[in-house]
Each structure stands twice: as structure tokens, then as C-alpha cells.
């Protein structure tokens, strides 16, 4: 009770700054949650400039495409696999076939075709690509004629293998880099606000320890302060002021991680600053 009253007394001294310090991290975390969208956009433009190794292939039907996608995902060296959106199948396949100078495909067959774009996780040599290609060919054969569509046999049309020095993991690194930069900037903003509150708290705690028979006031106040922060955050979530996804680890864990990093770094920083004030 004493510590709550103490914090309330400190809050009354500079209420605005306290509110900013308590609420800002949650708002910042909400902003962080929007970063994947930004990251994806930047990632796409980055990929457009520096493409990864990939290959396009066109499957004769959706069933084959799904089967191959499942099998290919289990292979080593494979990054992500993009399946062309249903709405874009016609245009994409037309473009691919046009690139391959194939004009003799029947329009009904064309509508059934599904395009796959397979990205390679690492640099893949021509030989390795041929092995993958052969494996997929055998898999296509293994599906058997009994399940084949009536119009014709199942087949794959391969596009050219595009080789690049850059691996797909660069995109992931980019995600982290963007998170890192944004986190650093937001952390700095928060820290600047926190420092003035901290200054008041440290001074008052020091005086409490000097003029009352109490020990280890600082860690206790910090613990209550962080608990209060989490409580206020959860209230904000309940009132839908900030995203409720924050509570679920199934959403990106990075905002949570960075929030904890906020608290941890700041606690460490303030402990370090408090050290000279400690009694001998």
C-alpha cells in the first residue's frame, strides 16, 4: 500500500509525463504490429531489385499443383513457394507461356492450370536444380493415369531457372533490420520521456531510504511500476483502445519481445544510474 501511495504522490508531481511513460509503450507496440505490412512492401520492392533464385512452373491442374507443393516443401534448399492467385491464373500463365513461346495450349486446359513459383533458400547449382526437376517429374508420373483428368495426362511445364547470389533469407534479415531500426527509434523516444520520470522517482526513493527505515525500495517500486504498466495496458486492451492481438503469442511475437526488451533495458539502465545514490 505504501508503494502505491508513493507512486501516486509521484504521479501527482508530473501526471502528463507519467501517462506518457505508461501508455506510450503500448501504443508503440501497437505501431510495431503494423510493421509486417511495411516490411512486406519494402521486402517486395527489394526482391524486385534483387531477386532470389527461383523457378516458375505450370501444373496441368490444381490437384497436381497442391501435391507438388506439399512434396516440394519437404525438400532441402527450398524457400517459400508462391501459388498464383486464382484470379490471376489466366494472366500469369498466359504471360509465362508467352515468355516460353508456347502458343498451342487449349484455352479450357489453360483455365485448369496452376502456376507455382519456387524460391530457393540458398544458392542452387544447375546440377542441383536438375535433380529437383527430375524428382518432381517422377512425382508427377507417380500420381498415376487412373487419377488423371479425362482430357489428358498430368504434366508440368517448366519455366527457366533463374539463379541469383541472394538467398531468400535476406528478406527475413530485412524484417529484423526494419524491426531493429524502428525499435531503436521508438525506444529512444520512450527513454527520453522515461528519464524525467525516473529522475523524480530515483530522487524520491533515495530520500525515502535516507529518512525512513526501509531497505531496497527501488526494486520494489520498479516492480510495482511495471505491474501497474501491464495492468493499465490490459485495461486499454479491454477497452479496445489498443490491439487485443498483443495478448496472443500466436500473433507475431516480436512486439511482445520488444516490449519486454523496453522494460528490461530501461530497468537495467536505471539500476546502473541509481548505483551512485546507494548508501555505502
Amino acid at each position: 500500500m505504501f508503494y502505491l501511495r508513493f507512486l501516486w504522490a509521484q504521479f501527482k508531481v508530473m501526471p502528463g509525463k507519467f501517462i506518457v511513460v505508461i501508455v506510450l509503450p503500448w501504443i508503440l507496440v501497437s505501431i510495431l504490429k503494423m510493421l509486417p505490412i511495411l516490411s512486406e512492401k519494402i521486402g517486395h520492392s527489394f526482391s524486385a531489385k534483387h531477386p532470389a533464385s527461383y523457378v516458375n512452373l505450370v501444373c496441368s491442374d490444381d490437384e497436381l499443383a497442391k501435391f507438388l507443393k506439399m512434396k516440394v516443401q519437404a525438400l532441402p534448399l527450398i524457400g517459400k513457394i508462391e501459388e498464383y492467385a486464382i484470379a490471376n491464373i489466366q494472366n500469369t500463365i498466359n504471360k509465362t507461356l508467352s515468355d516460353l513461346e508456347i502458343d498451342s495450349v487449349h484455352s479450357d486446359d489453360l483455365k485448369k492450370m496452376v502456376g507455382l513459383k519456387i524460391f530457393f533458400d540458398q544458392k542452387v547449382s544447375e546440377k542441383e536444380f536438375e535433380l529437383i526437376k527430375g524428382h518432381l517429374g517422377r512425382l508427377t508420373m507417380s500420381m498415376g493415369p487412373q487419377s488423371a483428368p479425362a482430357q489428358g495426362a498430368r504434366e508440368i511445364i517448366w519455366g527457366p531457372f533463374v539463379q541469383s547470389q541472394r538467398s531468400q533469407t535476406y528478406v527475413d534479415y530485412l524484417d529484423w533490420a526494419i524491426y531493429g531500426v524502428v525499435f531503436s527509434l521508438l525506444y529512444l523516444v520512450w527513454l527520453l520521456n522515461f528519464l524525467s520520470v525516473k529522475h523524480l522517482l530515483v530522487r524520491s526513493i533515495y530520500l525515502i531510504e535516507r529518512y525512513q527505515r526501509r531497505l531496497r525500495v527501488y526494486p520494489k517500486v520498479m516492480l510495482i511500476f511495471i505491474s501497474l504498466n501491464l495492468f493499465v495496458g490490459s485495461r486499454l486492451i479491454n477497452k479496445n483502445i489498443i490491439s487485443s492481438d498483443l495478448l496472443h503469442m500466436r500473433s507475431e511475437f516480436m512486439p511482445i519481445l520488444f516490449y519486454l526488451a523496453f522494460m528490461f533495458c530501461t530497468t537495467l539502465a536505471t539500476l546502473e544510474l541509481q548505483r551512485p545514490w546507494k548508501k555505502a
Binding site: A9, V13, R203, Y206, L207, I208, Y211, Q212, R213
Partner: peptide, 20 residues
């Protein structure tokens, strides 16, 4: 002196309200 400048005399003195 180490007094907190922007608060009242009473609040400064309350720092010494030792429950023991």
C-alpha cells in the same frame, strides 16, 4: 539540502513518515 524543489514543503516532509 536535497529537497524536491517543485513539490510542497508538506510533501517533502512526508518523506520522513517512517511507519516504524
Amino acid at each position: 539540502l536535497k529537497l524536491i524543489e517543485n513539490v510542497s514543503v508538506l510533501d517533502n516532509l512526508r518523506m520522513a513518515n517512517d511507519p516504524t
